[in-house]
Amino acid sequence: MNASSIVLTSAYVTIKGFCMNRCGTHGSSSAGHIKGKNYKFAYIWGGMCAWPFHQPIYGPQSPSLVAPNNGVGLDGMVINLASVLAGTATYPFGNGYYQGPTEAPLEPASACHGVYGKGTYPGYAGNLLVDPTRGASYNANGANGRRYLFPALYDPTTSSCSTLV
């Protein structure tokens, strides 16, 4: 059983507290015993959150970023999934790679929260590429002209957040 399950929450589904303090999570569970072996599986739960494409309620009030594919919820979900996928790959069963104390581990994307480009500081996502026609911010090019904004990941070899741009 080398698999991860991914559950995506629609914008039409309201879950108490979800998108208030987190937009996604991951964990693991037991799949039970099969032929005398105990199998585990990792899971990811992601929702449609608007940050960083929406003005925050508190904190620095710099202008919001423009969603690269013109879909605030889905573009936010891409960031979300990239973050929890990195955590699932490096810390799938609570015993993998993390930074900090075991009581409060930071995973690769959590350690770089809000960092998308070089020169980041609180309230500023960093130096990003900008679509000249729409003003949308992005740091990765995809197929068929799609653009994406991916979070930085902590790089243990440099002890810093590694960004795509």
Rank of each mutant, 00 (worst) to 15 (best):
N2I: 15
S5A: 10
S5M: 11
S5L: 14
V7S: 05
S10W: 12
A11G: 15
I15G: 12
G17A: 11
C19D: 14
C19N: 14
N21G: 11
C23Y: 10
G24H: 06
G24S: 11
G24C: 08
H26R: 14
G27K: 02
H33P: 01
G36F: 05
G36C: 07
K37M: 12
Y39V: 08
K40T: 13
F41T: 10
A42V: 13
I44W: 04
I44Y: 06
W45F: 12
W45V: 13
A50F: 12
A50Q: 14
F53A: 06
P56D: 11
P56F: 12
Q61Y: 03
P63S: 03
S64Q: 14
S64L: 09
L65T: 10
V66Q: 14
P68V: 13
P68Y: 08
G71K: 12
V72D: 08
G76V: 10
G76N: 05
V78S: 01
V78E: 02
A82S: 07
G87L: 05
A89M: 15
T90E: 00
G94I: 05
Y97C: 08
Y97A: 13
Y98W: 09
Y98L: 03
G100A: 06
P101K: 07
P101M: 07
E103K: 09
P105I: 04
L106F: 15
L106R: 15
L106H: 15
A111H: 09
C112T: 01
H113V: 14
G114L: 05
Y116E: 05
Y116L: 03
G119W: 04
Y121D: 04
P122Q: 03
P122M: 03
P122W: 11
G123K: 11
Y124A: 01
Y124S: 01
G126W: 00
L128P: 00
L129N: 09
V130H: 03
V130G: 01
D131C: 05
P132I: 09
R134S: 13
S137K: 00
